[in-house]
Nucleic acid binder design. Structure first.
Length: 397
DNA sequence: TCTGGGGTCCTAGGACCC
DNA sequence: TCTGGGGTCCTAGGACCC
């Protein structure tokens, strides 16, 4: 009999804004907006006036004229994040960070030692409030997906437990866009086919959803609708790319100006790589144009490196190859990233087997060894790659 | 919601190899 | 005159997330 897992999704409310409110008593209980140009975060007091993240600063101030606007304070966020994750790790043996302020915690099998999942979640919330002095919302469920949606539903400063067996009743009434991993494009496609809720998606066959959305997204939505998320909480995931980008303010065509920006970006990226002891092989150039269309160029080096000169050389070549497009369109953003980070190869592949029993949770090399290369190709063709659709479903070979 | 910065993963096609 | 089967790596673009 498959064991029912207990997974917490813990998410600090309005993290950046809450850190400012914590560190400065004058901001407590007040509408706080972080970032003047574009809203990076807004306290719940500001959200009550309709202020949202990624909103233009002017609009935000119009909606909430008495809001206090503060500059971002990165060192303070990093420090707070450390405290948050210390408490996360104290609360559960397996913690998978999603961002600075958000993580999945696997508390399966801790009932006797730490109490029920609900009790663990309540304790986490209490200690976060008392010791770290930040508000955190927790969702509890038998899968990552349901835990994540549950915490979203309980925000701010809340707790929601979806009991085992109640998952489908929880999921089915939800609009599809509430699902973590379903964005505007997938929502539009589903809506076109008369699917607005998860329950309506559940009425379609796997083949129909596959047809509508393609292999990965199709089987993802199918899996969501049938509550088949078996993704594990995995600690110790490593960065797979390091990048930096910069919006140029207004459209630029001058190669000299672009080269200046490019050089600064490469310097920033390679510094970060060296301080993190990372090297990478593939250099990406990212461009955005006046009409908001985007383009990327990439080049893979023979060896992984964090050397500024080598990466800058590659980036310059890429920029050179893109000059005709830039000349035509006008460039509004330049970005540089390095991927193919050494040591992040041999990646994990999760292949949960249909029916009861544990997931196959293995590296590609292990799959190769145990099942032959064919299994990998088949898995890839079926969309069983990283995260979107790690489910092997009835009817699959 | 007219748009910042930093990421992850999926898709599809081509070059190349045995 | 027509062209197999299996596989790897790379590039470019999309979708999505915080």
């Amino acid at each position: 009999v498959p064991k029912v897992r207990s997974i917490l999704h813990a998410d600090v409310d309005a993290f950046y804004a809450s850190v400012h409110q914590r560190n400065d008593p004058a901001l407590r209980g007040k509408p706080v907006i972080v970032g003047g140009g574009v809203v990076m975060a807004a306290s719940y007091e500001a959200r009550a006036y309709g202020v949202r993240g990624a909103m233009g600063g002017r609009q935000a101030r119009r909606l909430c004229p008495h809001a206090i606007v503060v500059d971002p304070d990165w060192p303070a966020y990093v420090e707070a994040s450390k405290q948050v994750f210390e408490l996360f790790r104290e609360s559960a043996p397996t913690v998978e960070g999603i961002s600075m302020e958000e993580a999945f915690l696997d508390v399966t099998g801790l009932e006797r030692i730490r109490g029920s999942p609900r009790e663990i979640a309540q304790r986490l919330r209490r200690e976060m409030r008392e010791r770290v002095r930040l508000p955190v919302t927790v969702g509890v469920a038998s899968s990552k997906l349901v835990a994540k949606i549950a915490s979203g539903a309980a925000k701010p400063d809340g707790l929601k437990v979806v009991e085992p067996g109640a998952e489908l009743a929880f999921l089915h009434p939800l609009p599809v866009e509430k699902v973590w991993g379903v964005g505007p494009a997938t929502t539009a496609k589903l809506n076109e086919h008369g699917i607005a809720t998860v329950g309506q998606a559940a009425e379609r066959t796997k083949a129909e959803l596959f047809e509508m959305l393609g292999p990965a997204a199709g089987r993802f939505v199918h899996g969501v609708a049938q509550n088949l998320d078996t993704r594990r909480v995995r600690s110790g995931r490593r960065r797979r790319s390091v990048g930096a980008q910069s919006a140029l303010g207004r459209s630029t065509r001058e190669p000299e100006r672009l080269d200046t920006v490019l050089t600064a970006l490469v310097d920033k990226v390679t510094r970060r790589m060296r301080s993190g002891a990372r090297t990478g092989r593939t250099v990406h150039l990212r461009l955005r144009f006046a009409d908001f269309s985007r383009a990327t160029r990439a080049h893979t080096l023979p060896h992984a490196t964090a050397d500024t000169a080598i990466i800058l050389g590659a980036a310059r070549t890429l920029l050179g190859s893109a000059l005709p497009v830039i000349e035509e369109e006008g460039c509004t953003l330049v970005g540089v990233a390095v991927s193919n980070i050494e040591g992040t190869g041999g990646e994990q592949l999760v292949l949960p087997v249909d029916g009861p029993g544990p997931a196959l949770d293995v590296t590609l090399d292990e799959v190769r060894e145990r099942f032959g290369t064919k299994a990998i190709t088949r898995a890839a063709l079926l969309g069983h790659s990283r995260d979107m659709a790690p489910w092997l479903l009835p009817g699959d070979e």
